[in-house]
Measured scan of single mutants.
Amino acid sequence: EPLWIRPDAPSRCTWQLGRPASESPHHHTAPAKSPKILPDILKKIGDTPMVRINKIGKKFGLKCELLAKCEFFNAGGSVKDRISLRMIEDAERDGTLKPGDTIIEPTSGNTGIGLALAAAVRGYRCIIVMPEKMSSEKVDVLRALGAEIVRTPTNARFDSPESHVGVAWRLKNEIPNSHILDQYRNASNPLAHYDTTADEILQQCDGKLDMLVASVGTGGTITGIARKLKEKCPGCRIIGVDPEGSILAEPEELNQTEQTTYEVEGIGYDFIPTVLDRTVVDKWFKSNDEEAFTFARMLIAQEGLLCGGSAGSTVAVAVKAAQELQEGQRCVVILPDSVRNYMTKFLSDRWMLQKGFLKEEDLTEKKPWWWHLRVQELGLSAPLTVLPTITCGHTIEILREKGFDQAPVVDEAGVILGMVTLGNMLSSLLAGKVQPSDQVGKVIYKQFKQIRLTDTLGRLSHILEMDHFALVVHEQIQYHSTGKSSQRQMVFGVVTAIDLLNFVAAQERDQK
């Protein structure tokens, strides 16, 4: 057995438009009618409502009807409940999964919650491996369901041993009777949507819809739904939504950006999952974080739909894509998950301010006199920076000697690579993860907040409520011999709460 199987392995699926269902090699399930009293909570997966979006479509000038398939009504709160249950049931049916076995899954959280929910009911041990950027709410729900959680670096490539995929496979090879159901490759993922989600949409719309818009992560949702719609409703256009920084969209030119990270969760990847059939997507749109969270908040405030950030991405694209539809036509959007997962993220004004998705003037509360002053007023001194090749031991000596707790790590040209902190280095040394002679590049981390000289002290204040420091950066445009230009970030300084307090105190003292 291989040590790991690539999540982007070539698909062996034989589905073709027009091929009889009787030739399918898979076990198919028909939607079942729910009894009045459910035998367990797993029976509350599927049969989610279709809700008309009344205000947002009109606000953006849509002539067509805009409908939302509300997947956050599933038992675990997301569309991923469907595939989690289906993968477990299919693994039980073919004898792969037996009582007492362990389920391991690399996930952005929602599939993990679905699997942990099913594992709690069915009696399996469950280990979820997820990147650090995923919300604390997801972690809390997983723990409450009895799952064990392993976190991995957000910026690790999918084929790196440190990625959530790599760590999951390492655990599988170490733990007896453990299984990775593997949402990236498992046919049960798109089949769950082909058999149930798509049929529900067709039934709820009486077979009449002209466009379907869905955000894409593993691709199982859009693949399964689109294949069924292509068979039953061939005139329906399928629109895929991919965040900026991901590479799922086609044509490839759409993916060209210097951005590699994004805040919206559960969609987009740096590889093409095996289950994603991009041939059934008629057109791709890219979405960005700001519009995703703005539209998610709009869905909550104006439509009462308590959905997550990827739902915002989907609707932001839908109001663009559906401009081509006329009166009497219908566009369906998939709202994948609930706001429950993001209470401390985009639902929080403070978080939105820190990330730059909300401006101070958007909030009406009274601010102190210094709130709208610029960061450049602080008069920061030149920063202490270190090269990635310097040793951890030497870096600790320098920081202690100069009285700093942290320093930016830059390359020879001064471009920011990340940050090192005294606390992080000492804990890594004590844990045996690094040696004093190791290069400081081994303990770089990139989960820090950046701020510009033109940003306000109010925004800085919000950042420092949650973080010990902020890195002050400025952009530099560099022209190359080819005539092309590129933008790079340079370090201007490091600012802490002490710097802000000293500035405010000094100004008030001078005024007296």
Rank of each mutant, 00 (worst) to 15 (best):
V409L: 04
G304C: 02
Y342S: 02
Q326H: 12
Q323S: 06
S348L: 06
P243F: 04
W351P: 00
K320Q: 14
I238K: 03
F271L: 03
K402Q: 14
Q326M: 12
N255Y: 08
L384Q: 08
S287I: 13
T274L: 06
V434C: 14
P251Q: 05
Q329N: 08
G458I: 07
E324G: 09
I463L: 14
A413F: 15
D242I: 00
E465L: 15
G418S: 14
L299M: 07
F293L: 02
E244N: 09
K433H: 10
K320Y: 15
I267C: 01
I239V: 04
W369A: 11
W371D: 09
I334C: 01
D362A: 12
S486G: 12
V415R: 09
Q447E: 15
K366R: 04
G312E: 00
R297T: 01
A316K: 13
G328A: 04
L254C: 03
G393W: 11
E253M: 02
R488H: 14
T389S: 09
T391Q: 02
F503V: 14
N502R: 13
E263R: 03
E397F: 13
E263A: 15
L299I: 08
E361F: 14
R400V: 14
G423D: 04
V281M: 11
H372E: 12
Q354I: 03
N255A: 05
A413L: 15
S313F: 02
G309R: 00
N255F: 07
T364W: 13
S338F: 04
T454D: 04
E508T: 02
V280T: 15
Q511V: 10
K367T: 10
Q511Y: 11
T482N: 15
R400H: 14
T274S: 09
R374I: 12
W369S: 02
S310H: 01
T260V: 12
L501R: 05
E361I: 09
E291A: 12
S310L: 01
R330P: 07
I498C: 03
G356Y: 07
V333P: 06
Q323R: 14
F404S: 07
Q450Y: 03
T395R: 05
L325Q: 05
D362N: 03
E258V: 11
L430A: 13
N288W: 13
R278N: 06
T454V: 14
K512C: 13
E327I: 04
E252Q: 15
G245K: 05
